[in-house]
Design a protein around this nucleic acid. Structure first.
Lengths: 110, 110
DNA sequence: CACCTTCTACGATATTCGTCGTACGACGCA
DNA sequence: TGCGTCGTACGACGAATATCGTAGAAGGTG
């Protein structure tokens, strides 16, 4: 039984269940925006390799918010948890939205 | 002395001081999103004429959040406070962002 | 086996947020 | 002067949030 007790079931919402307000709320945070920005360039990353300055447990919290909003996908491989951006799902539901927001963020702090 | 005591000074941030995270946070609320959506179609509205279902004091709170994020402008005329969308300022700072978000919202709940 | 790394779950804490009721100031009109 | 309307300020309250420290599970490596 892999990770049955301590590790959560890694629930990812269906792309059709996306809630725009949840997506906006998830992105309205500097740490989470940095995570998404990083993933937009790098396809896949392990949790501990993001350029943010918070405690590991805090990072876990932010990943959960992003995951439950449907922004990221996480898969487990051995000891690591690899994170990817759900770009296709997001673009399917809200075409152009994510890149529009990321462009605005880049414009604000390139 | 016009509205010196009870009414706030109606501070509107400069368009150059826009903070994207503040904008996203302001829009990550159903009531405030409805206000912005309404203003995107109707150029100007009085405070009490928006299709939202909250108490007047709550509405005042939401207007303040939108105003301080730079999304709306309010001017006083007699007894009323007229609200407009700062579309040009927003588009100057974050081109295409607002319409991209509004399009996503319309897609989610047309 | 022992040890280290990675990441999570849990509990605690301080802060923010959305909501409302109440009171009231400013305006317009009779 | 008085009354009704519009919108605000203030205080309160519950819920959500962001943060952290600690403890521990799972995997990798010796």
């Amino acid at each position: 039984m892999p990770r049955s007790q301590r590790r959560a079931a890694l629930v990812h919402p269906d792309a059709r269940d996306y809630d725009l307000l949840d997506v906006l709320h998830a992105l309205a945070d500097r740490t989470r925006m940095t995570i998404v920005r990083t993933l937009r360039t790098d396809p896949e990353r392990a949790c501990g390799t993001f350029p943010v300055d918070v405690a590991p447990s805090t990072l876990t919290h932010h990943f959960r918010v992003l995951r439950e909003a449907g922004l990221i996908h996480q898969r487990e491989e051995g000891n690591r948890r690899w994170t990817t951006l759900r770009l296709a799902d997001l673009d399917g539901r809200f075409p152009g939205l994510l890149d529009s927001i990321l462009a605005a963020d880049k414009r604000a702090a390139p």
